[in-house]
């Protein structure tokens, strides 16, 4: 027990460079594995939350762009969504990394982009924006006609109509699908250090450490279930937080018409 507390103080923040510098080399205890993999989760959570926050705003813009009449708005939005939904996230990571690497040669401004904390974040942001944009676009198309007509009848136009009628309804309709998108964004964050982005000074995410242990011990049956456990906890937290928002969005509806969040697993993106 004592030992384990020591391990936690040593390695609890290892993934952001606090504590012991050297990773354990042999005789891994269960505590060490749980601590280090958990420490790696910091990165997964960071990538997930920041990409989701910025992606949400951009996705709304993309959805509106795709639904716009004007081809100058519609075409770029359509192409952006197709580009990021039509290719594997894996290849996107690789491409972005080498793109930033060669941009670095042009100007030192791009130095930070080759590090995971910014470069990978941009890829994840674009990716989740595209997926969420498509979800929002679908929701935008399925807003009940009556709602919009009622808004028109009340004389709401332009920005107030969007802010008070269209946007809340769109969110309400899209929310269950968006919850799933958020969960899979968190799952997708595990790809970051598996692609080009180097884990500088072995500061990696959860899968990086899990893979480290599996490589060193040749035993996948301990680190990967630990990783899965962490992700299940994270998924449950995400579901409950999004569930709260869902409750708020559906507050005005009778009980049976409220949309429920259902966990629908998908595979890799």
């Amino acid at each position: 027990m004592e030992e384990c507390l020591q391990t936690i103080t040593d390695y609890g923040l290892r993934s952001i460079g606090v504590g012991q510098r050297l990773l354990p080399k042999e005789d891994f205890t269960l505590c060490e594995q749980v601590t280090l993999i958990g420490s790696g989760m910091i990165w997964n959570i960071y990538f997930g939350i920041v990409a989701l926050l910025f992606g949400f705003v951009f996705a709304t813009a993309l959805a509106l762009g795709k639904a716009a009449q004007n081809p100058w708005l519609r075409k770029p939005a359509e192409w952006f969504i197709f580009l990021f939904r039509g290719s594997p996230l894996f290849i996107q990571f690789f491409f972005a990394y080498f793109l930033f690497l060669s941009l670095k040669g042009v100007s030192p401004i791009f130095d930070a982009f080759t590090a995971a904390w910014l470069g990978a974040l941009i890829v994840l942001f674009c990716n989740t924006s595209a997926y969420t944009g498509e979800i929002f676009y679908g929701a935008l198309l399925s807003i009940p006609k009556g709602d919009v007509e009622a808004a028109d009848a009340y004389g709401l136009t332009g920005w107030p109509r969007f802010k008070r009628i269209i946007w809340p309804t769109m969110l309400r309709l899209a929310w269950p699908a968006y919850t799933n998108e958020a969960i899979f964004l968190f799952h997708a964050t595990t790809l970051v250090f598996f692609t080009g982005f180097p884990a500088w000074q072995q500061r990696g995410d959860a899968l990086y450490y899990a893979n480290y242990f599996a490589d060193k011990t040749f035993n996948p049956f301990v680190p990967y279930p630990i990783l899965a456990g962490f992700f299940i906890i994270l998924t449950l937290i995400v579901i409950s937080l999004f569930g709260l928002v869902n409750r708020r969005l559906n507050k005005h509806l009778p009980q049976e018409r409220r949309s429920k969040i259902k966990y629908r697993p998908t595979l890799i993106r």
Binding site: S87, P88, I91, F95, F98, S102, G105, P198, W200
Partner: peptide
């Protein structure tokens, strides 16, 4: 391993390689 600190004297063609892969998948 630590590409972060490597600067290539010649042009880096790997970017085009991945661009090609991206287009292939698209």
């Amino acid at each position: 391993k630590t590409t972060r600190f490597t600067d290539y004297p010649h042009g880096d063609w790997r970017m085009w390689y991945f661009l090609f892969l991206l287009v292939f998948y698209l």
